[in-house]
Write a protein that binds this DNA or RNA. Structure first.
Lengths: 198, 198, 198, 198
DNA sequence: AATGAATGAGGGTTCATTCAT
DNA sequence: GATGAATGAACCCTCATTCAT
């Protein structure tokens, strides 16, 4: 990659980051191309020159964010931590990874651009699901996961927890991270409502 | 209620329903007052005469939907079904009640209108939480809920599940309601990842 | 005038008064038919039934106000007070008469409705000017007015003073009606900048 | 100032002039941004890009006109003409300066935008009053102004005359600037109603 | 005769996008 | 290649006026 191309890629990355921050802060629909241009310190036209149109910009951002996000997922799952540690990271997102990927704006984008939704689903289903299924197999083998549960249900359950926690993040923050509460929540996801029969 | 008032209320209700359908279908931000007016078969100005502004229309709709939704919640919890049946209904919302209340547009609205968010939280916290705490007590008494879990944690867990399911509603719909999947999901919420130790 | 007609005329008068108050308070362009209807406690349609259209309502109001105003002028000029007293009343408008007739809204109306402007000018030129000319004649005869000045110039001068004072009413109010100031102002209009040569 | 800036300023000035002409011709409230845009030969959005909003456009125009107007005032007062000549120019505004500044639309604007009214009053009070007080001092020294009159009263009198003349500008225009009339008016302001005692 | 309901036309404003330098 | 300037389309909202009861 020569100097020209590198500088160009830097500008594009600057625009992407500016857009992501704004989308997260104000919501997708409230952010105009002009806002992004100002935040990124370039002219609107520059964005058009680089990305073509708003749709293409969005598509590019989603793609970029998604791929990088998936890479981090992979690193976690293939990493050295124990199963419960990995689970905690994935579900409770101690990492900042999904603070970027997630957020209402992604849902809105997916809704507004069927093309993008298609893309996400393809990637997600193909790549992430495969990772997760491996992960569950590991959990079952180590006795952390009920082997009777289908991978499909487990995937969905994780998705639900992940999205629910994300959507409740303000509530959780308001609890002040009380330890008892956190222990209870983890107990709930591990042993359910009924609790552990010893 | 005389003829005038009745017809007026019918028109208002028609507008509300048109708006809800459009919001659910296209997302809140993509729906203009003009769209709603056309769908409802009235003029834009009629909407303004009845509701005052887009904000007030939205507020009115949220209020209406929410109150009716809460009434149904109350009926379920105070009803005659067994604890697990009630839980299933509440969490997985087999009833159509939340098909109306839920939908990405509600999140978007709450995000765009702090006033409405405030309203929702007040109602929810004050009314729904009280109902839920009663519900948990019933569950603990009947042995369905681990008595060591705090009400706070249970509330939060339900909130997470509810929001997560809501946010995953499209995913769930796509599974086609397979029975095995549903059984697994219920198992997960009752006995957690680890599963029942018999 | 029978009961029906009287009641009808009362309603019309109520609408007129409401309109005048609103015009004076908020300016002609900021007042809608709806505002007037609400202030007058009737429906918009009632105004249309009585007056025909906004234009006709305005025309009617201007006509009414103007004629009543002129009647008061006539009473003052034909009254028993001395020339300087009359002058003070007319110019400095101690009476409330012109607080109604005057005001920015009248100018705006005249500007917007050439027909009305025509009407005002005809009445004013024909009636008021005649009154004023008599008044100047009286003043000249009594030695209060320089006989060399043309009636035209005197008319214009009065008009200028009247309008200028009206437009400066807030400034004047802010001076707190200091006596010295008032004496100076009267001296200025009687003896001009140069002052009295004794 | 390079080509860009110059052309931009030209466009802005074109918009300003178009707006002033339209305001003077049709009155402030009857002129829409669209009207101005068409008259100036640009798109509505261009006006928004340059001025931000209708309010800001108006503010900008008033400011521009006012400052240029004040500069001319200063030139007159500090100029070489005799006191009566200066007075005539200032009060009767033979110069075209106030044909621009004046007009009913300015009153309407001041009424509609308290912020602008504030601005005008601040400038006027601080700058113009200082100029006028110097001017009166000159008049008194040269024997043209009764030295017993307070500066306050003189200022108010001028203000009244100025506003009155301004408000009567259509009347004055209709007189066709007859010479006798003008002489009489000047006589009235110099020697008042009573006239010169020789 | 009086009213609540309804509307077409128009106003200010914003946005994604293109033009000209 | 990058920018300031410019725009058509669309949006929320208001107004004078008519319709239906």
């Amino acid at each position: 990659m020569n100097g020209f191309t590198r500088r160009k890629e830097q500008k594009k990355e600057g625009v992407r980051q500016a857009a992501i921050v704004l989308f997260k802060t104000y919501g997708f629909n409230k952010v105009s191309i002009n806002d992004i241009a100002q935040k990124a310190g370039v002219s609107q036209v520059t964005i058009y020159n680089h990305f073509g149109s708003k749709d293409e910009l969005v598509h590019d951002i989603v793609k970029t964010v998604f791929l990088s996000c998936m890479e981090k997922y992979r690193a976690i799952i293939k990493g050295d931590k124990t199963f419960p540690e990995k689970m905690e990271i994935i579900v409770f997102e101690k990492t900042e990874l999904t603070s970027q990927y997630h957020g209402e704006w992604m849902q809105t984008v997916a809704r507004s651009y069927p093309q993008i939704q298609q893309f996400i689903e393809n990637i997600w289903m193909q790549e992430v699901n495969r990772l997760m299924i491996d992960f569950f197999a590991e959990g079952k083998k180590q006795g952390y996961v009920n082997p009777e549960l289908s991978s499909e249900a487990l995937l969905l359950y994780f998705e639900i927890l992940r999205k629910g926690i994300f959507a409740s993040s303000d509530l959780i923050a308001r609890t002040g991270n009380s330890e008892k509460l956190m222990r209870d929540l983890i107990s709930l996801s591990l042993y359910g409502l009924v609790g552990r029969k010893e």
